[in-house]
Design a protein around this nucleic acid. Structure first.
Lengths: 138, 138
DNA sequence: TCTATACTGGTAATCATTATCAGTCACGCC
DNA sequence: GGCGTGACTGATAATGATTACCAGTATAGA
């Protein structure tokens, strides 16, 4: 980790921070740090890979971006709906299109399971991946 | 990947294959490939890291082991209940104890969500992590 | 026993991510 | 507007898990 970014220290707004955020804002789909970095560089922007990672992490910490892991362990990011509410994702594994879905059902189920086995402090990871209507049509 | 291990080729039973399997059979908790490797080496067994990875992967392919990813992208393995049935896990993040849980509820929910958004071929990742009763008592 | 070939394991290569650290720049203050 | 502090930047090295290579070995059937 890299010092405390969300502690008392005040944050600065920088060109690079804006770049990362804007780039992420461009699409609906989840993108990896490497991808965002390449895209920015391809546009001729001057920015470092570390910086991209840092800003993505900051966005996640601030609750402004969502993150999830691919099966091969790569982290993907995307700007989060203003929804501070807890939610899950239904991701198209072909085009990356993502639907935010609400999971009251799962939440309840998770709680039940936890209680049933005497667990507490239970977090849950729930992601759905499939093929969206458009990709099927194609 | 490393050639096709579950194709037509017949499999051989080897000392190393047994070692990996036995080691995994020792505990209830999920363990990483690196851990299994270290444990075996610590016991004085002669085995290579590549081999451990290969056998763990084979076990997963054969449906004899379960695998899941930690938040930092490390793959964990454990022998699977004979249950060929689809199931999920409730893992204690402190001691690693794991309960296999059945998720008819989630399955249904996942299907509903998929249908609702026009997705098909939907896979789901559902893992619960918390603290088990014993760890809380301590 | 003999042979074909699946399996092994040390080592090098990948690849995403993180740590370092000197240089830069934003921002509050005078 | 000029200054100083320290947060931010980014090139590079390091890390750590996993995979690819490949020559040598051992298994199972003939």
């Amino acid at each position: 980790m890299d010092a405390v970014r969300n502690g008392k220290k005040r944050l600065r707004s920088t060109r690079q921070g804006g770049l990362v955020r804007d780039q992420l804002a461009l699409g609906e789909a989840f993108r990896s740090a490497q991808t965002v970095f390449s895209e920015l560089r391809a546009q001729g922007e001057v920015i470092g890979l570390s910086t991209v990672y840092r800003h993505l992490q900051s966005l996640v910490d601030a609750g402004e971006a969502d993150t999830l892991q691919t099966v091969d362990g790569e982290a993907l990011y995307r700007l989060c709906g203003q929804t501070a509410r807890h939610h899950h994702h239904l991701v198209c594994r072909q085009c990356g299109r993502t639907e935010e879905i609400e999971g009251r059902g799962v939440e309840r189920w998770a709680e039940q399971m936890a209680a049933l086995h005497g667990f507490t402090d239970v977090d849950h990871t729930v992601e759905l991946m499939g093929r969206c209507a458009e990709c099927i049509a194609r």
